[in-house]
Design a protein around this nucleic acid. Structure first.
Lengths: 133, 133
DNA sequence: TGCCGAATTGAAGATTTCTTCAATTGCTGC
DNA sequence: GCAGCAATTGAAGAAATCTTCAATTCGGCA
């Protein structure tokens, strides 16, 4: 009895939902890389990195091979760049969209009279994506 | 002081990491839809759906407009389909990849002699993406 | 064999996210 | 105004994920 597709998709996105795991995938886009190098590029404890690598391995999006005294990781498939690209496109779209709206609001009235409703329209009533500024 | 981009990306993917939220985005790809209809298409309690819609709204990926006694949701931008498409591509790639590997293993030796190492190579030693069969 | 560094694993506590319920808001029609 | 339906909100307990530490595995080398 197969798991519904939308649930597999959700799991997949959750697998991507961690800063360290994103960094790893980005670094691996330039080619295979040993754990040692990942470690120098990402600011994180060794065992924490291992935990995140284990998550990526379990999902199948990366593979690892032992070479002498180091372990080398690679992307399992070619489509990862495309995915991260699409994500960045949407992300910048969201961010600039909200910025534009805020600019409009500021132009239309003094900054200190922005109403709760205005902020709400801009998607900022409670912290949205925290990188949006 | 802006939040690092990879953190914003991680938040973005986490925002997508829920079955109900995925369903909503898929349904909205065909055009705006009132909450009422979302509710008949997705098997979930009304207030739970509201919570998930709130998450999507906060991130800015959807917008809502009140029309008479109903609320209508729409996608905020055009790139969502592309993102979900890329995700599905990778997902099927991962799934068929693992299936192929398993098939190879089964062909090479009786099923009941698969070693832990074999399963591990196939990314299945501990439950991977649960939809992978 | 025994030791060393590299990497992974298991487990525990802290943090975050999910689900659910009751209460609330907004609109329509009586 | 107020009764009734649609949708959202706040809050609390349950469940999942993160971080960290100690212990373990694996290969290389004296």
């Amino acid at each position: 009895m197969p798991v519904p597709l939308y649930q597999a998709k959700a799991e997949f996105f959750r697998m991507l939902g961690h800063p360290v795991r994103i960094r790893v995938l980005e670094l691996l886009q330039d080619g295979p890389m040993p754990v040692r190098d990942l470690l120098t590029n990402i600011e994180v404890e060794r065992s924490n990195l291992s935990q995140q690598l284990a998550v990526l391995r379990r999902s199948g999006i990366v593979t690892s091979v032992r070479e002498a005294d180091t372990v080398v990781y690679s992307l399992a498939g070619p489509d990862v760049a495309e995915l991260l690209g699409a994500a960045r496109r949407i992300l910048t779209e969201l961010i600039t969209g909200q910025q534009d709206l805020l600019d409009e609001l500021r132009a239309a009235q003094p900054a200190d009279t922005l109403s709760r409703a205005d902020l709400s329209r801009a998607g900022l009533s409670r912290a949205g994506l925290s990188g949006t500024r």
